[in-house]
């Protein structure tokens, strides 16, 4: 397993800085996009954990947030829409020695990729899943996502979808995620700490980052006035965490649930037989 140990109090300073994890490729995001901050939180988290860039794989699907892998100096995988968790699961199970971080958005992760989200929580492979949630499809220029408010008006759904927005954190808990946190892009250092803790925690870690879309949801600039550190520490009681999440106003920031379910990792590389041994099974 690649469980990354927590640093000791007297641990030497990281040999890496955030800059070591940045590529020279310029992001395509709009000025002011929350995803710039999340990118910086990724690189800061990697520096906190002092991981070599080539030991990290950043996997994504399609959407604004999913452009992150190429902006890092790590190994990256920019796959198809909604399937990032599947690709990341295959990579992690085949290569348990790597640290695998998955970047997604609310459309990619909760709509087209919704089924994979449920089963990744349930499977509990040692992945860290960071979803940049801005309640809108940005890359396709402003359509409602599963977390969009029911009355949000758009060209595709005039007058709003009329559909209740869904609560990914509660769903993650119900489906079995081992670590659940909410972060805010406006606090890149706090988000970096949460991502670092998510990576350190074995099993499936889910970090929902509120990442404002200044172009299609400019009212989200106000989020910075509403967020607050969670008034209670993380719990290891999933029922208690779910009750808190279903009754809070969506602006409590921090680690909300941390369990100790052992990660799913089949014994890759353990068998010692050869194909010639298997062949004997067919002999008459």
């Amino acid at each position: 397993m690649s469980a990354v140990p927590a640093p000791a109090a007297d641990a030497p300073k990281s040999a890496h800085t955030a800059a070591d994890y940045k590529s020279d490729y310029k992001p395509i995001w709009c000025p002011g996009c929350g995803d710039y901050s999340v990118l910086s939180s990724f690189t800061k988290a990697f520096a906190i954990l002092d991981l070599a860039p080539e030991r990290i794989a950043v996997v994504s699907g399609i959407g604004c947030s999913s452009r992150i892998p190429a902006y890092t100096s790590c190994y990256g995988f920019h796959g198809v829409h909604g399937r990032s968790l599947a690709a990341a699961t295959g990579l992690k199970l085949a290569r348990p020695d790597l640290t695998v971080v998955v970047a997604s958005g609310d459309g990619d992760g909760y709509s087209i990729g919704g089924n994979h989200f449920l089963h990744a929580c349930r499977r509990n492979a040692d992945l860290t899943y960071v979803v940049m949630d801005n309640h809108v499809y940005g890359m396709t220029k402003g359509q409602p996502s599963p977390t969009t408010e029911p009355d949000w008006d758009s060209k595709l759904s005039p007058g709003g979808t009329g559909l209740r927005s869904f609560n990914p954190l509660v769903i993650a808990l119900a489906a079995g995620a081992n670590f659940v946190a909410r972060a805010f892009a406006g606090d890149p250092n706090g988000t970096a700490e949460i991502i670092a803790e998510a990576i350190r925690t074995p099993g499936f870690s889910f970090v929902e980052v509120m990442s404002p879309c200044v172009t299609f949801r400019p009212e989200q600039r106000e989020w910075k006035h509403h967020v607050r550190p969670s008034p209670v520490p993380a719990t290891d009681d999933a029922a208690k965490a779910a009750r808190r999440l279903m009754t809070d106003d969506g602006f409590n920031i921090g680690v909300l649930y941390k369990g100790d379910r052992p990660p799913y990792q089949p014994p890759m590389g353990k068998g010692r037989k050869t194909p010639a041994d298997l062949e004997r099974g067919f002999a008459i």
Partner: peptide
């Protein structure tokens, strides 16, 4: 027996993306 693994995926979309991830690795 030969040191590999088989994973049962949630659907065929997942299974093929999983093998792409593993092969990328």
């Amino acid at each position: 027996q030969v040191g590999g693994v088989l994973v049962q995926a949630e659907d065929e979309l997942a299974s093929i993306n999983m093998i792409i991830g593993a092969s990328y690795g």
